[in-house]
Design a protein around this nucleic acid. Sequence first.
DNA 1: GTATTTTAATTTGCACGCAAAGTATTTGCA
DNA 2: TGCAAATACTTTGCGTGCAAATTAAAATAC
Lengths: 147, 147
Amino acid sequence: MPFEQLKLENQLCHRLYMASNSITRAYREPLAKINLTYPQYIVMMALWEQDQITIAKLIEKTAIDGGALTQILKKMTEKKLLSVVKDKQDQRKRLIQLSTSGQALKLNAADIPKQIHCKFESIDSEKALQLLASLDLVIKDLNEPTQ
Amino acid sequence: MPFEQLKLENQLCHRLYMASNSITRAYREPLAKINLTYPQYIVMMALWEQDQITIAKLIEKTAIDGGALTQILKKMTEKKLLSVVKDKQDQRKRLIQLSTSGQALKLNAADIPKQIHCKFESIDSEKALQLLASLDLVIKDLNEPTQ
DNA sequence: GTATTTTAATTTGCACGCAAAGTATTTGCA
DNA sequence: TGCAAATACTTTGCGTGCAAATTAAAATAC
């Protein structure tokens, strides 16, 4: 029965699509309160961990597309969250610097994970860890250079 | 340590974001061969299962946003994959009808799941089922009306 | 020491995803 | 019957995600 696989219900891809969209939607409202979109929030989390990094490094950490990232950083610069400056050592590279308000925003963002977590009634930490591990496998398999 | 949760590495949301993007990217090339985008493929799968359904029903099955779906169906109509006609019984509703070529495309799409599956070296069927179940919980929790 | 290649980032064009506003129909109800 | 509310879609505006083309600077080759 070669067509069974085309059933939407059985498709990992479709379930991931729905789950990812659901998560982004769930974050939308809390993030709107601190005037961030979801990818912008990802960028902020990366920079709160480590500031003064190049765009290439930021792409590596966030997995956001380079082309998109240029636009996202432009918007975030307009919001005075950060600035993008040329690396003196290598003029091709750009260094990203959080502004004071960009750093300060971390305080306001501190309870966002909690707001989301409280929605998860069916998922305890162990299940979450298991899910993380499974997703890592998916990501790894799909990004292997072999194929 | 209230800020630990802001670490990107520990974020289920970010891992889902990456996994979902990886999957969509993986499908891009195979789907391009049959001239479909990923959401269009989801629509086709839904219609291959059941034709002659309303847009509301299609939204329910695919979880694609209604506004986006209107545009997607317009593009698919231009490609002669389907047509959207008014429901005689209720003129507000629209019925979607696969064209002959839309139905025939199922044959060409039959081996796409296999092309993707062969990329999964770390994920056997049991793991996939477990992952599906976990994602269902995520989706369910996030879409509960009780926040 | 200049030409070629590589690396880093930007730009462009297209297709969504989503909220909010708008447009028809139909239903419910006084 | 007539009119407000509900339903089913469509439109609009913004922010990505992505491939492909472009620009600029550094590394390498010759």
